[in-house]
Nucleic acid binder design. Structure first.
Lengths: 219, 219
DNA sequence: GGCAAACACGAGCGACCGCTCGCATTTCCA
DNA sequence: TGGAAATGCGAGCGGTCGCTCGTGTTTGCC
């Protein structure tokens, strides 16, 4: 084995030593990338534009990232990690015992909050335009979130077949993304109203499935 | 007035005379564009690739379209027209008197059918990646569809405030798009199942709003 | 203080893209 | 049937993009 340092499996050789300045630059570049991605989408965002937004030269950008995709991947990883630690292991089993309305509050509110503060998250998840972007990272997050959802649904309503549970989780995930987009594209009172609509739609979809009759809203 | 022909307002000068061969080429190019757009999205689709798919040279493509955007616009216009005439003026007022479940069948089924046969429609509507694409055509369709929806909702439940009605229509439109995506990404029995889920979600969302209590589905 | 490594720069390379242009071929009609 | 217009071709122009490389500067460690 030709390990450069102790404990390195010598498979991929990239443990470049970073200075504090470098770490700062990386954060700067990721922030800039988030802005540019939000503004123009992943495919249309040019690395030169990201470097310019960060106030550095193109060469400097490539000192820290091997290519454009790596920027999105690292950004996605940091956001994922941030989301996980901000709200713990999201929707833990104890949520299963809550009434549907309260459970939706407990799950939807933090999710909306996070996505409002990090709009680039939805942009990255939603970008099917890139070549093979996020093939492992975004998919990993997607699968993980959906597995949690399936798990939760299984706890609430164990009589559902496996296929039905998967379909339900997929559907909830998709509906949530759609509603989230509307929430993010509005502000102030309208935004708050769309958050309520999002919850109402999820409630309306899930109530008949998990077998809890809910009080109807006043029109 | 410097009109080239009779009745031409002389503002835009482009009434080029087409032969039957040209019309055939145009249809060929639009079909090819639909394929390429579906495969790679609008932004990543190159005009050279569209020409190659159609079996013609790049120069020939630009004999019939002034630029790349015009291809998408013309494609969108043809699809819109096709949709309108295929299902009449979609969801006419008489639907308002139907029970919610039947109304959803009457509206959702033809829409799903059309989008299954023309998957490029969703691709074009969904592509926010292009510079200023569809700024008049796609928006016109969006606004028109949403206006119809608002109208229908107003007929069913006249007590809703204008803002609430708009929000509801926007929400339904968005939820529908999300469900449609899931439907299009599956086949056979799974696809049929997701169509039911789509209807169920719309039913669940709308039932409390329009004040008709619906029979709950068996889980 | 010296020196290797990390950091920073920015002109520019090669690839690709939307699109053009000069020219050949086919079609329509007087 | 002659010729104007419509159609067809494909090399290639100007531009942008992702990315490189040679070179100079800053930092951490002895």
């Amino acid at each position: 084995m030709t390990g450069t340092k102790a404990g390195q499996p010598a498979g991929e050789a990239k443990p470049r030593r970073r200075q504090a300045r470098g770490e700062r630059r990386i954060q700067q570049l990721l922030d800039a990338a988030a802005n540019v991605f939000c503004r123009t989408g992943y495919a249309s965002a040019s690395t030169n534009a990201i470097a310019r937004e960060a106030g550095v030269s193109p060469g400097t950008l490539y000192q820290f990232f091997p290519n454009k995709e790596a920027i999105a991947v690292e950004l996605g990883e940091r956001l994922t990690h941030q989301m996980r630690e901000a709200h713990g292991v999201l929707f833990t089993p104890e949520y299963a015992s809550l009434p549907l309305g309260e459970m939706l509050d407990a799950v939807v509110d933090p999710m909306v909050e996070f996505n409002c503060q990090n709009p680039v998250f939805l942009t990255l998840i939603h970008s099917g335009d890139a070549p093979g972007i996020m093939t492992e990272d975004h998919d990993a997050l997607h699968v993980a979130l959906q597995a949690r959802l399936e798990e939760l649904i299984g706890l609430i309503q164990p009589e559902l077949s496996a296929e039905r549970r998967t379909r339900t989780a997929t559907m909830v995930f998709s509906l949530f993304k759609a509603g989230l987009e509307l929430v993010l594209s509005h502000e102030g009172e309208e935004q708050a109203a769309y958050i309520e609509e999002l919850k109402a739609s999820l409630h309306g979809y899930l109530a008949p499935i998990i077998g809890t009759q809910a009080p109807s809203r006043t029109p």
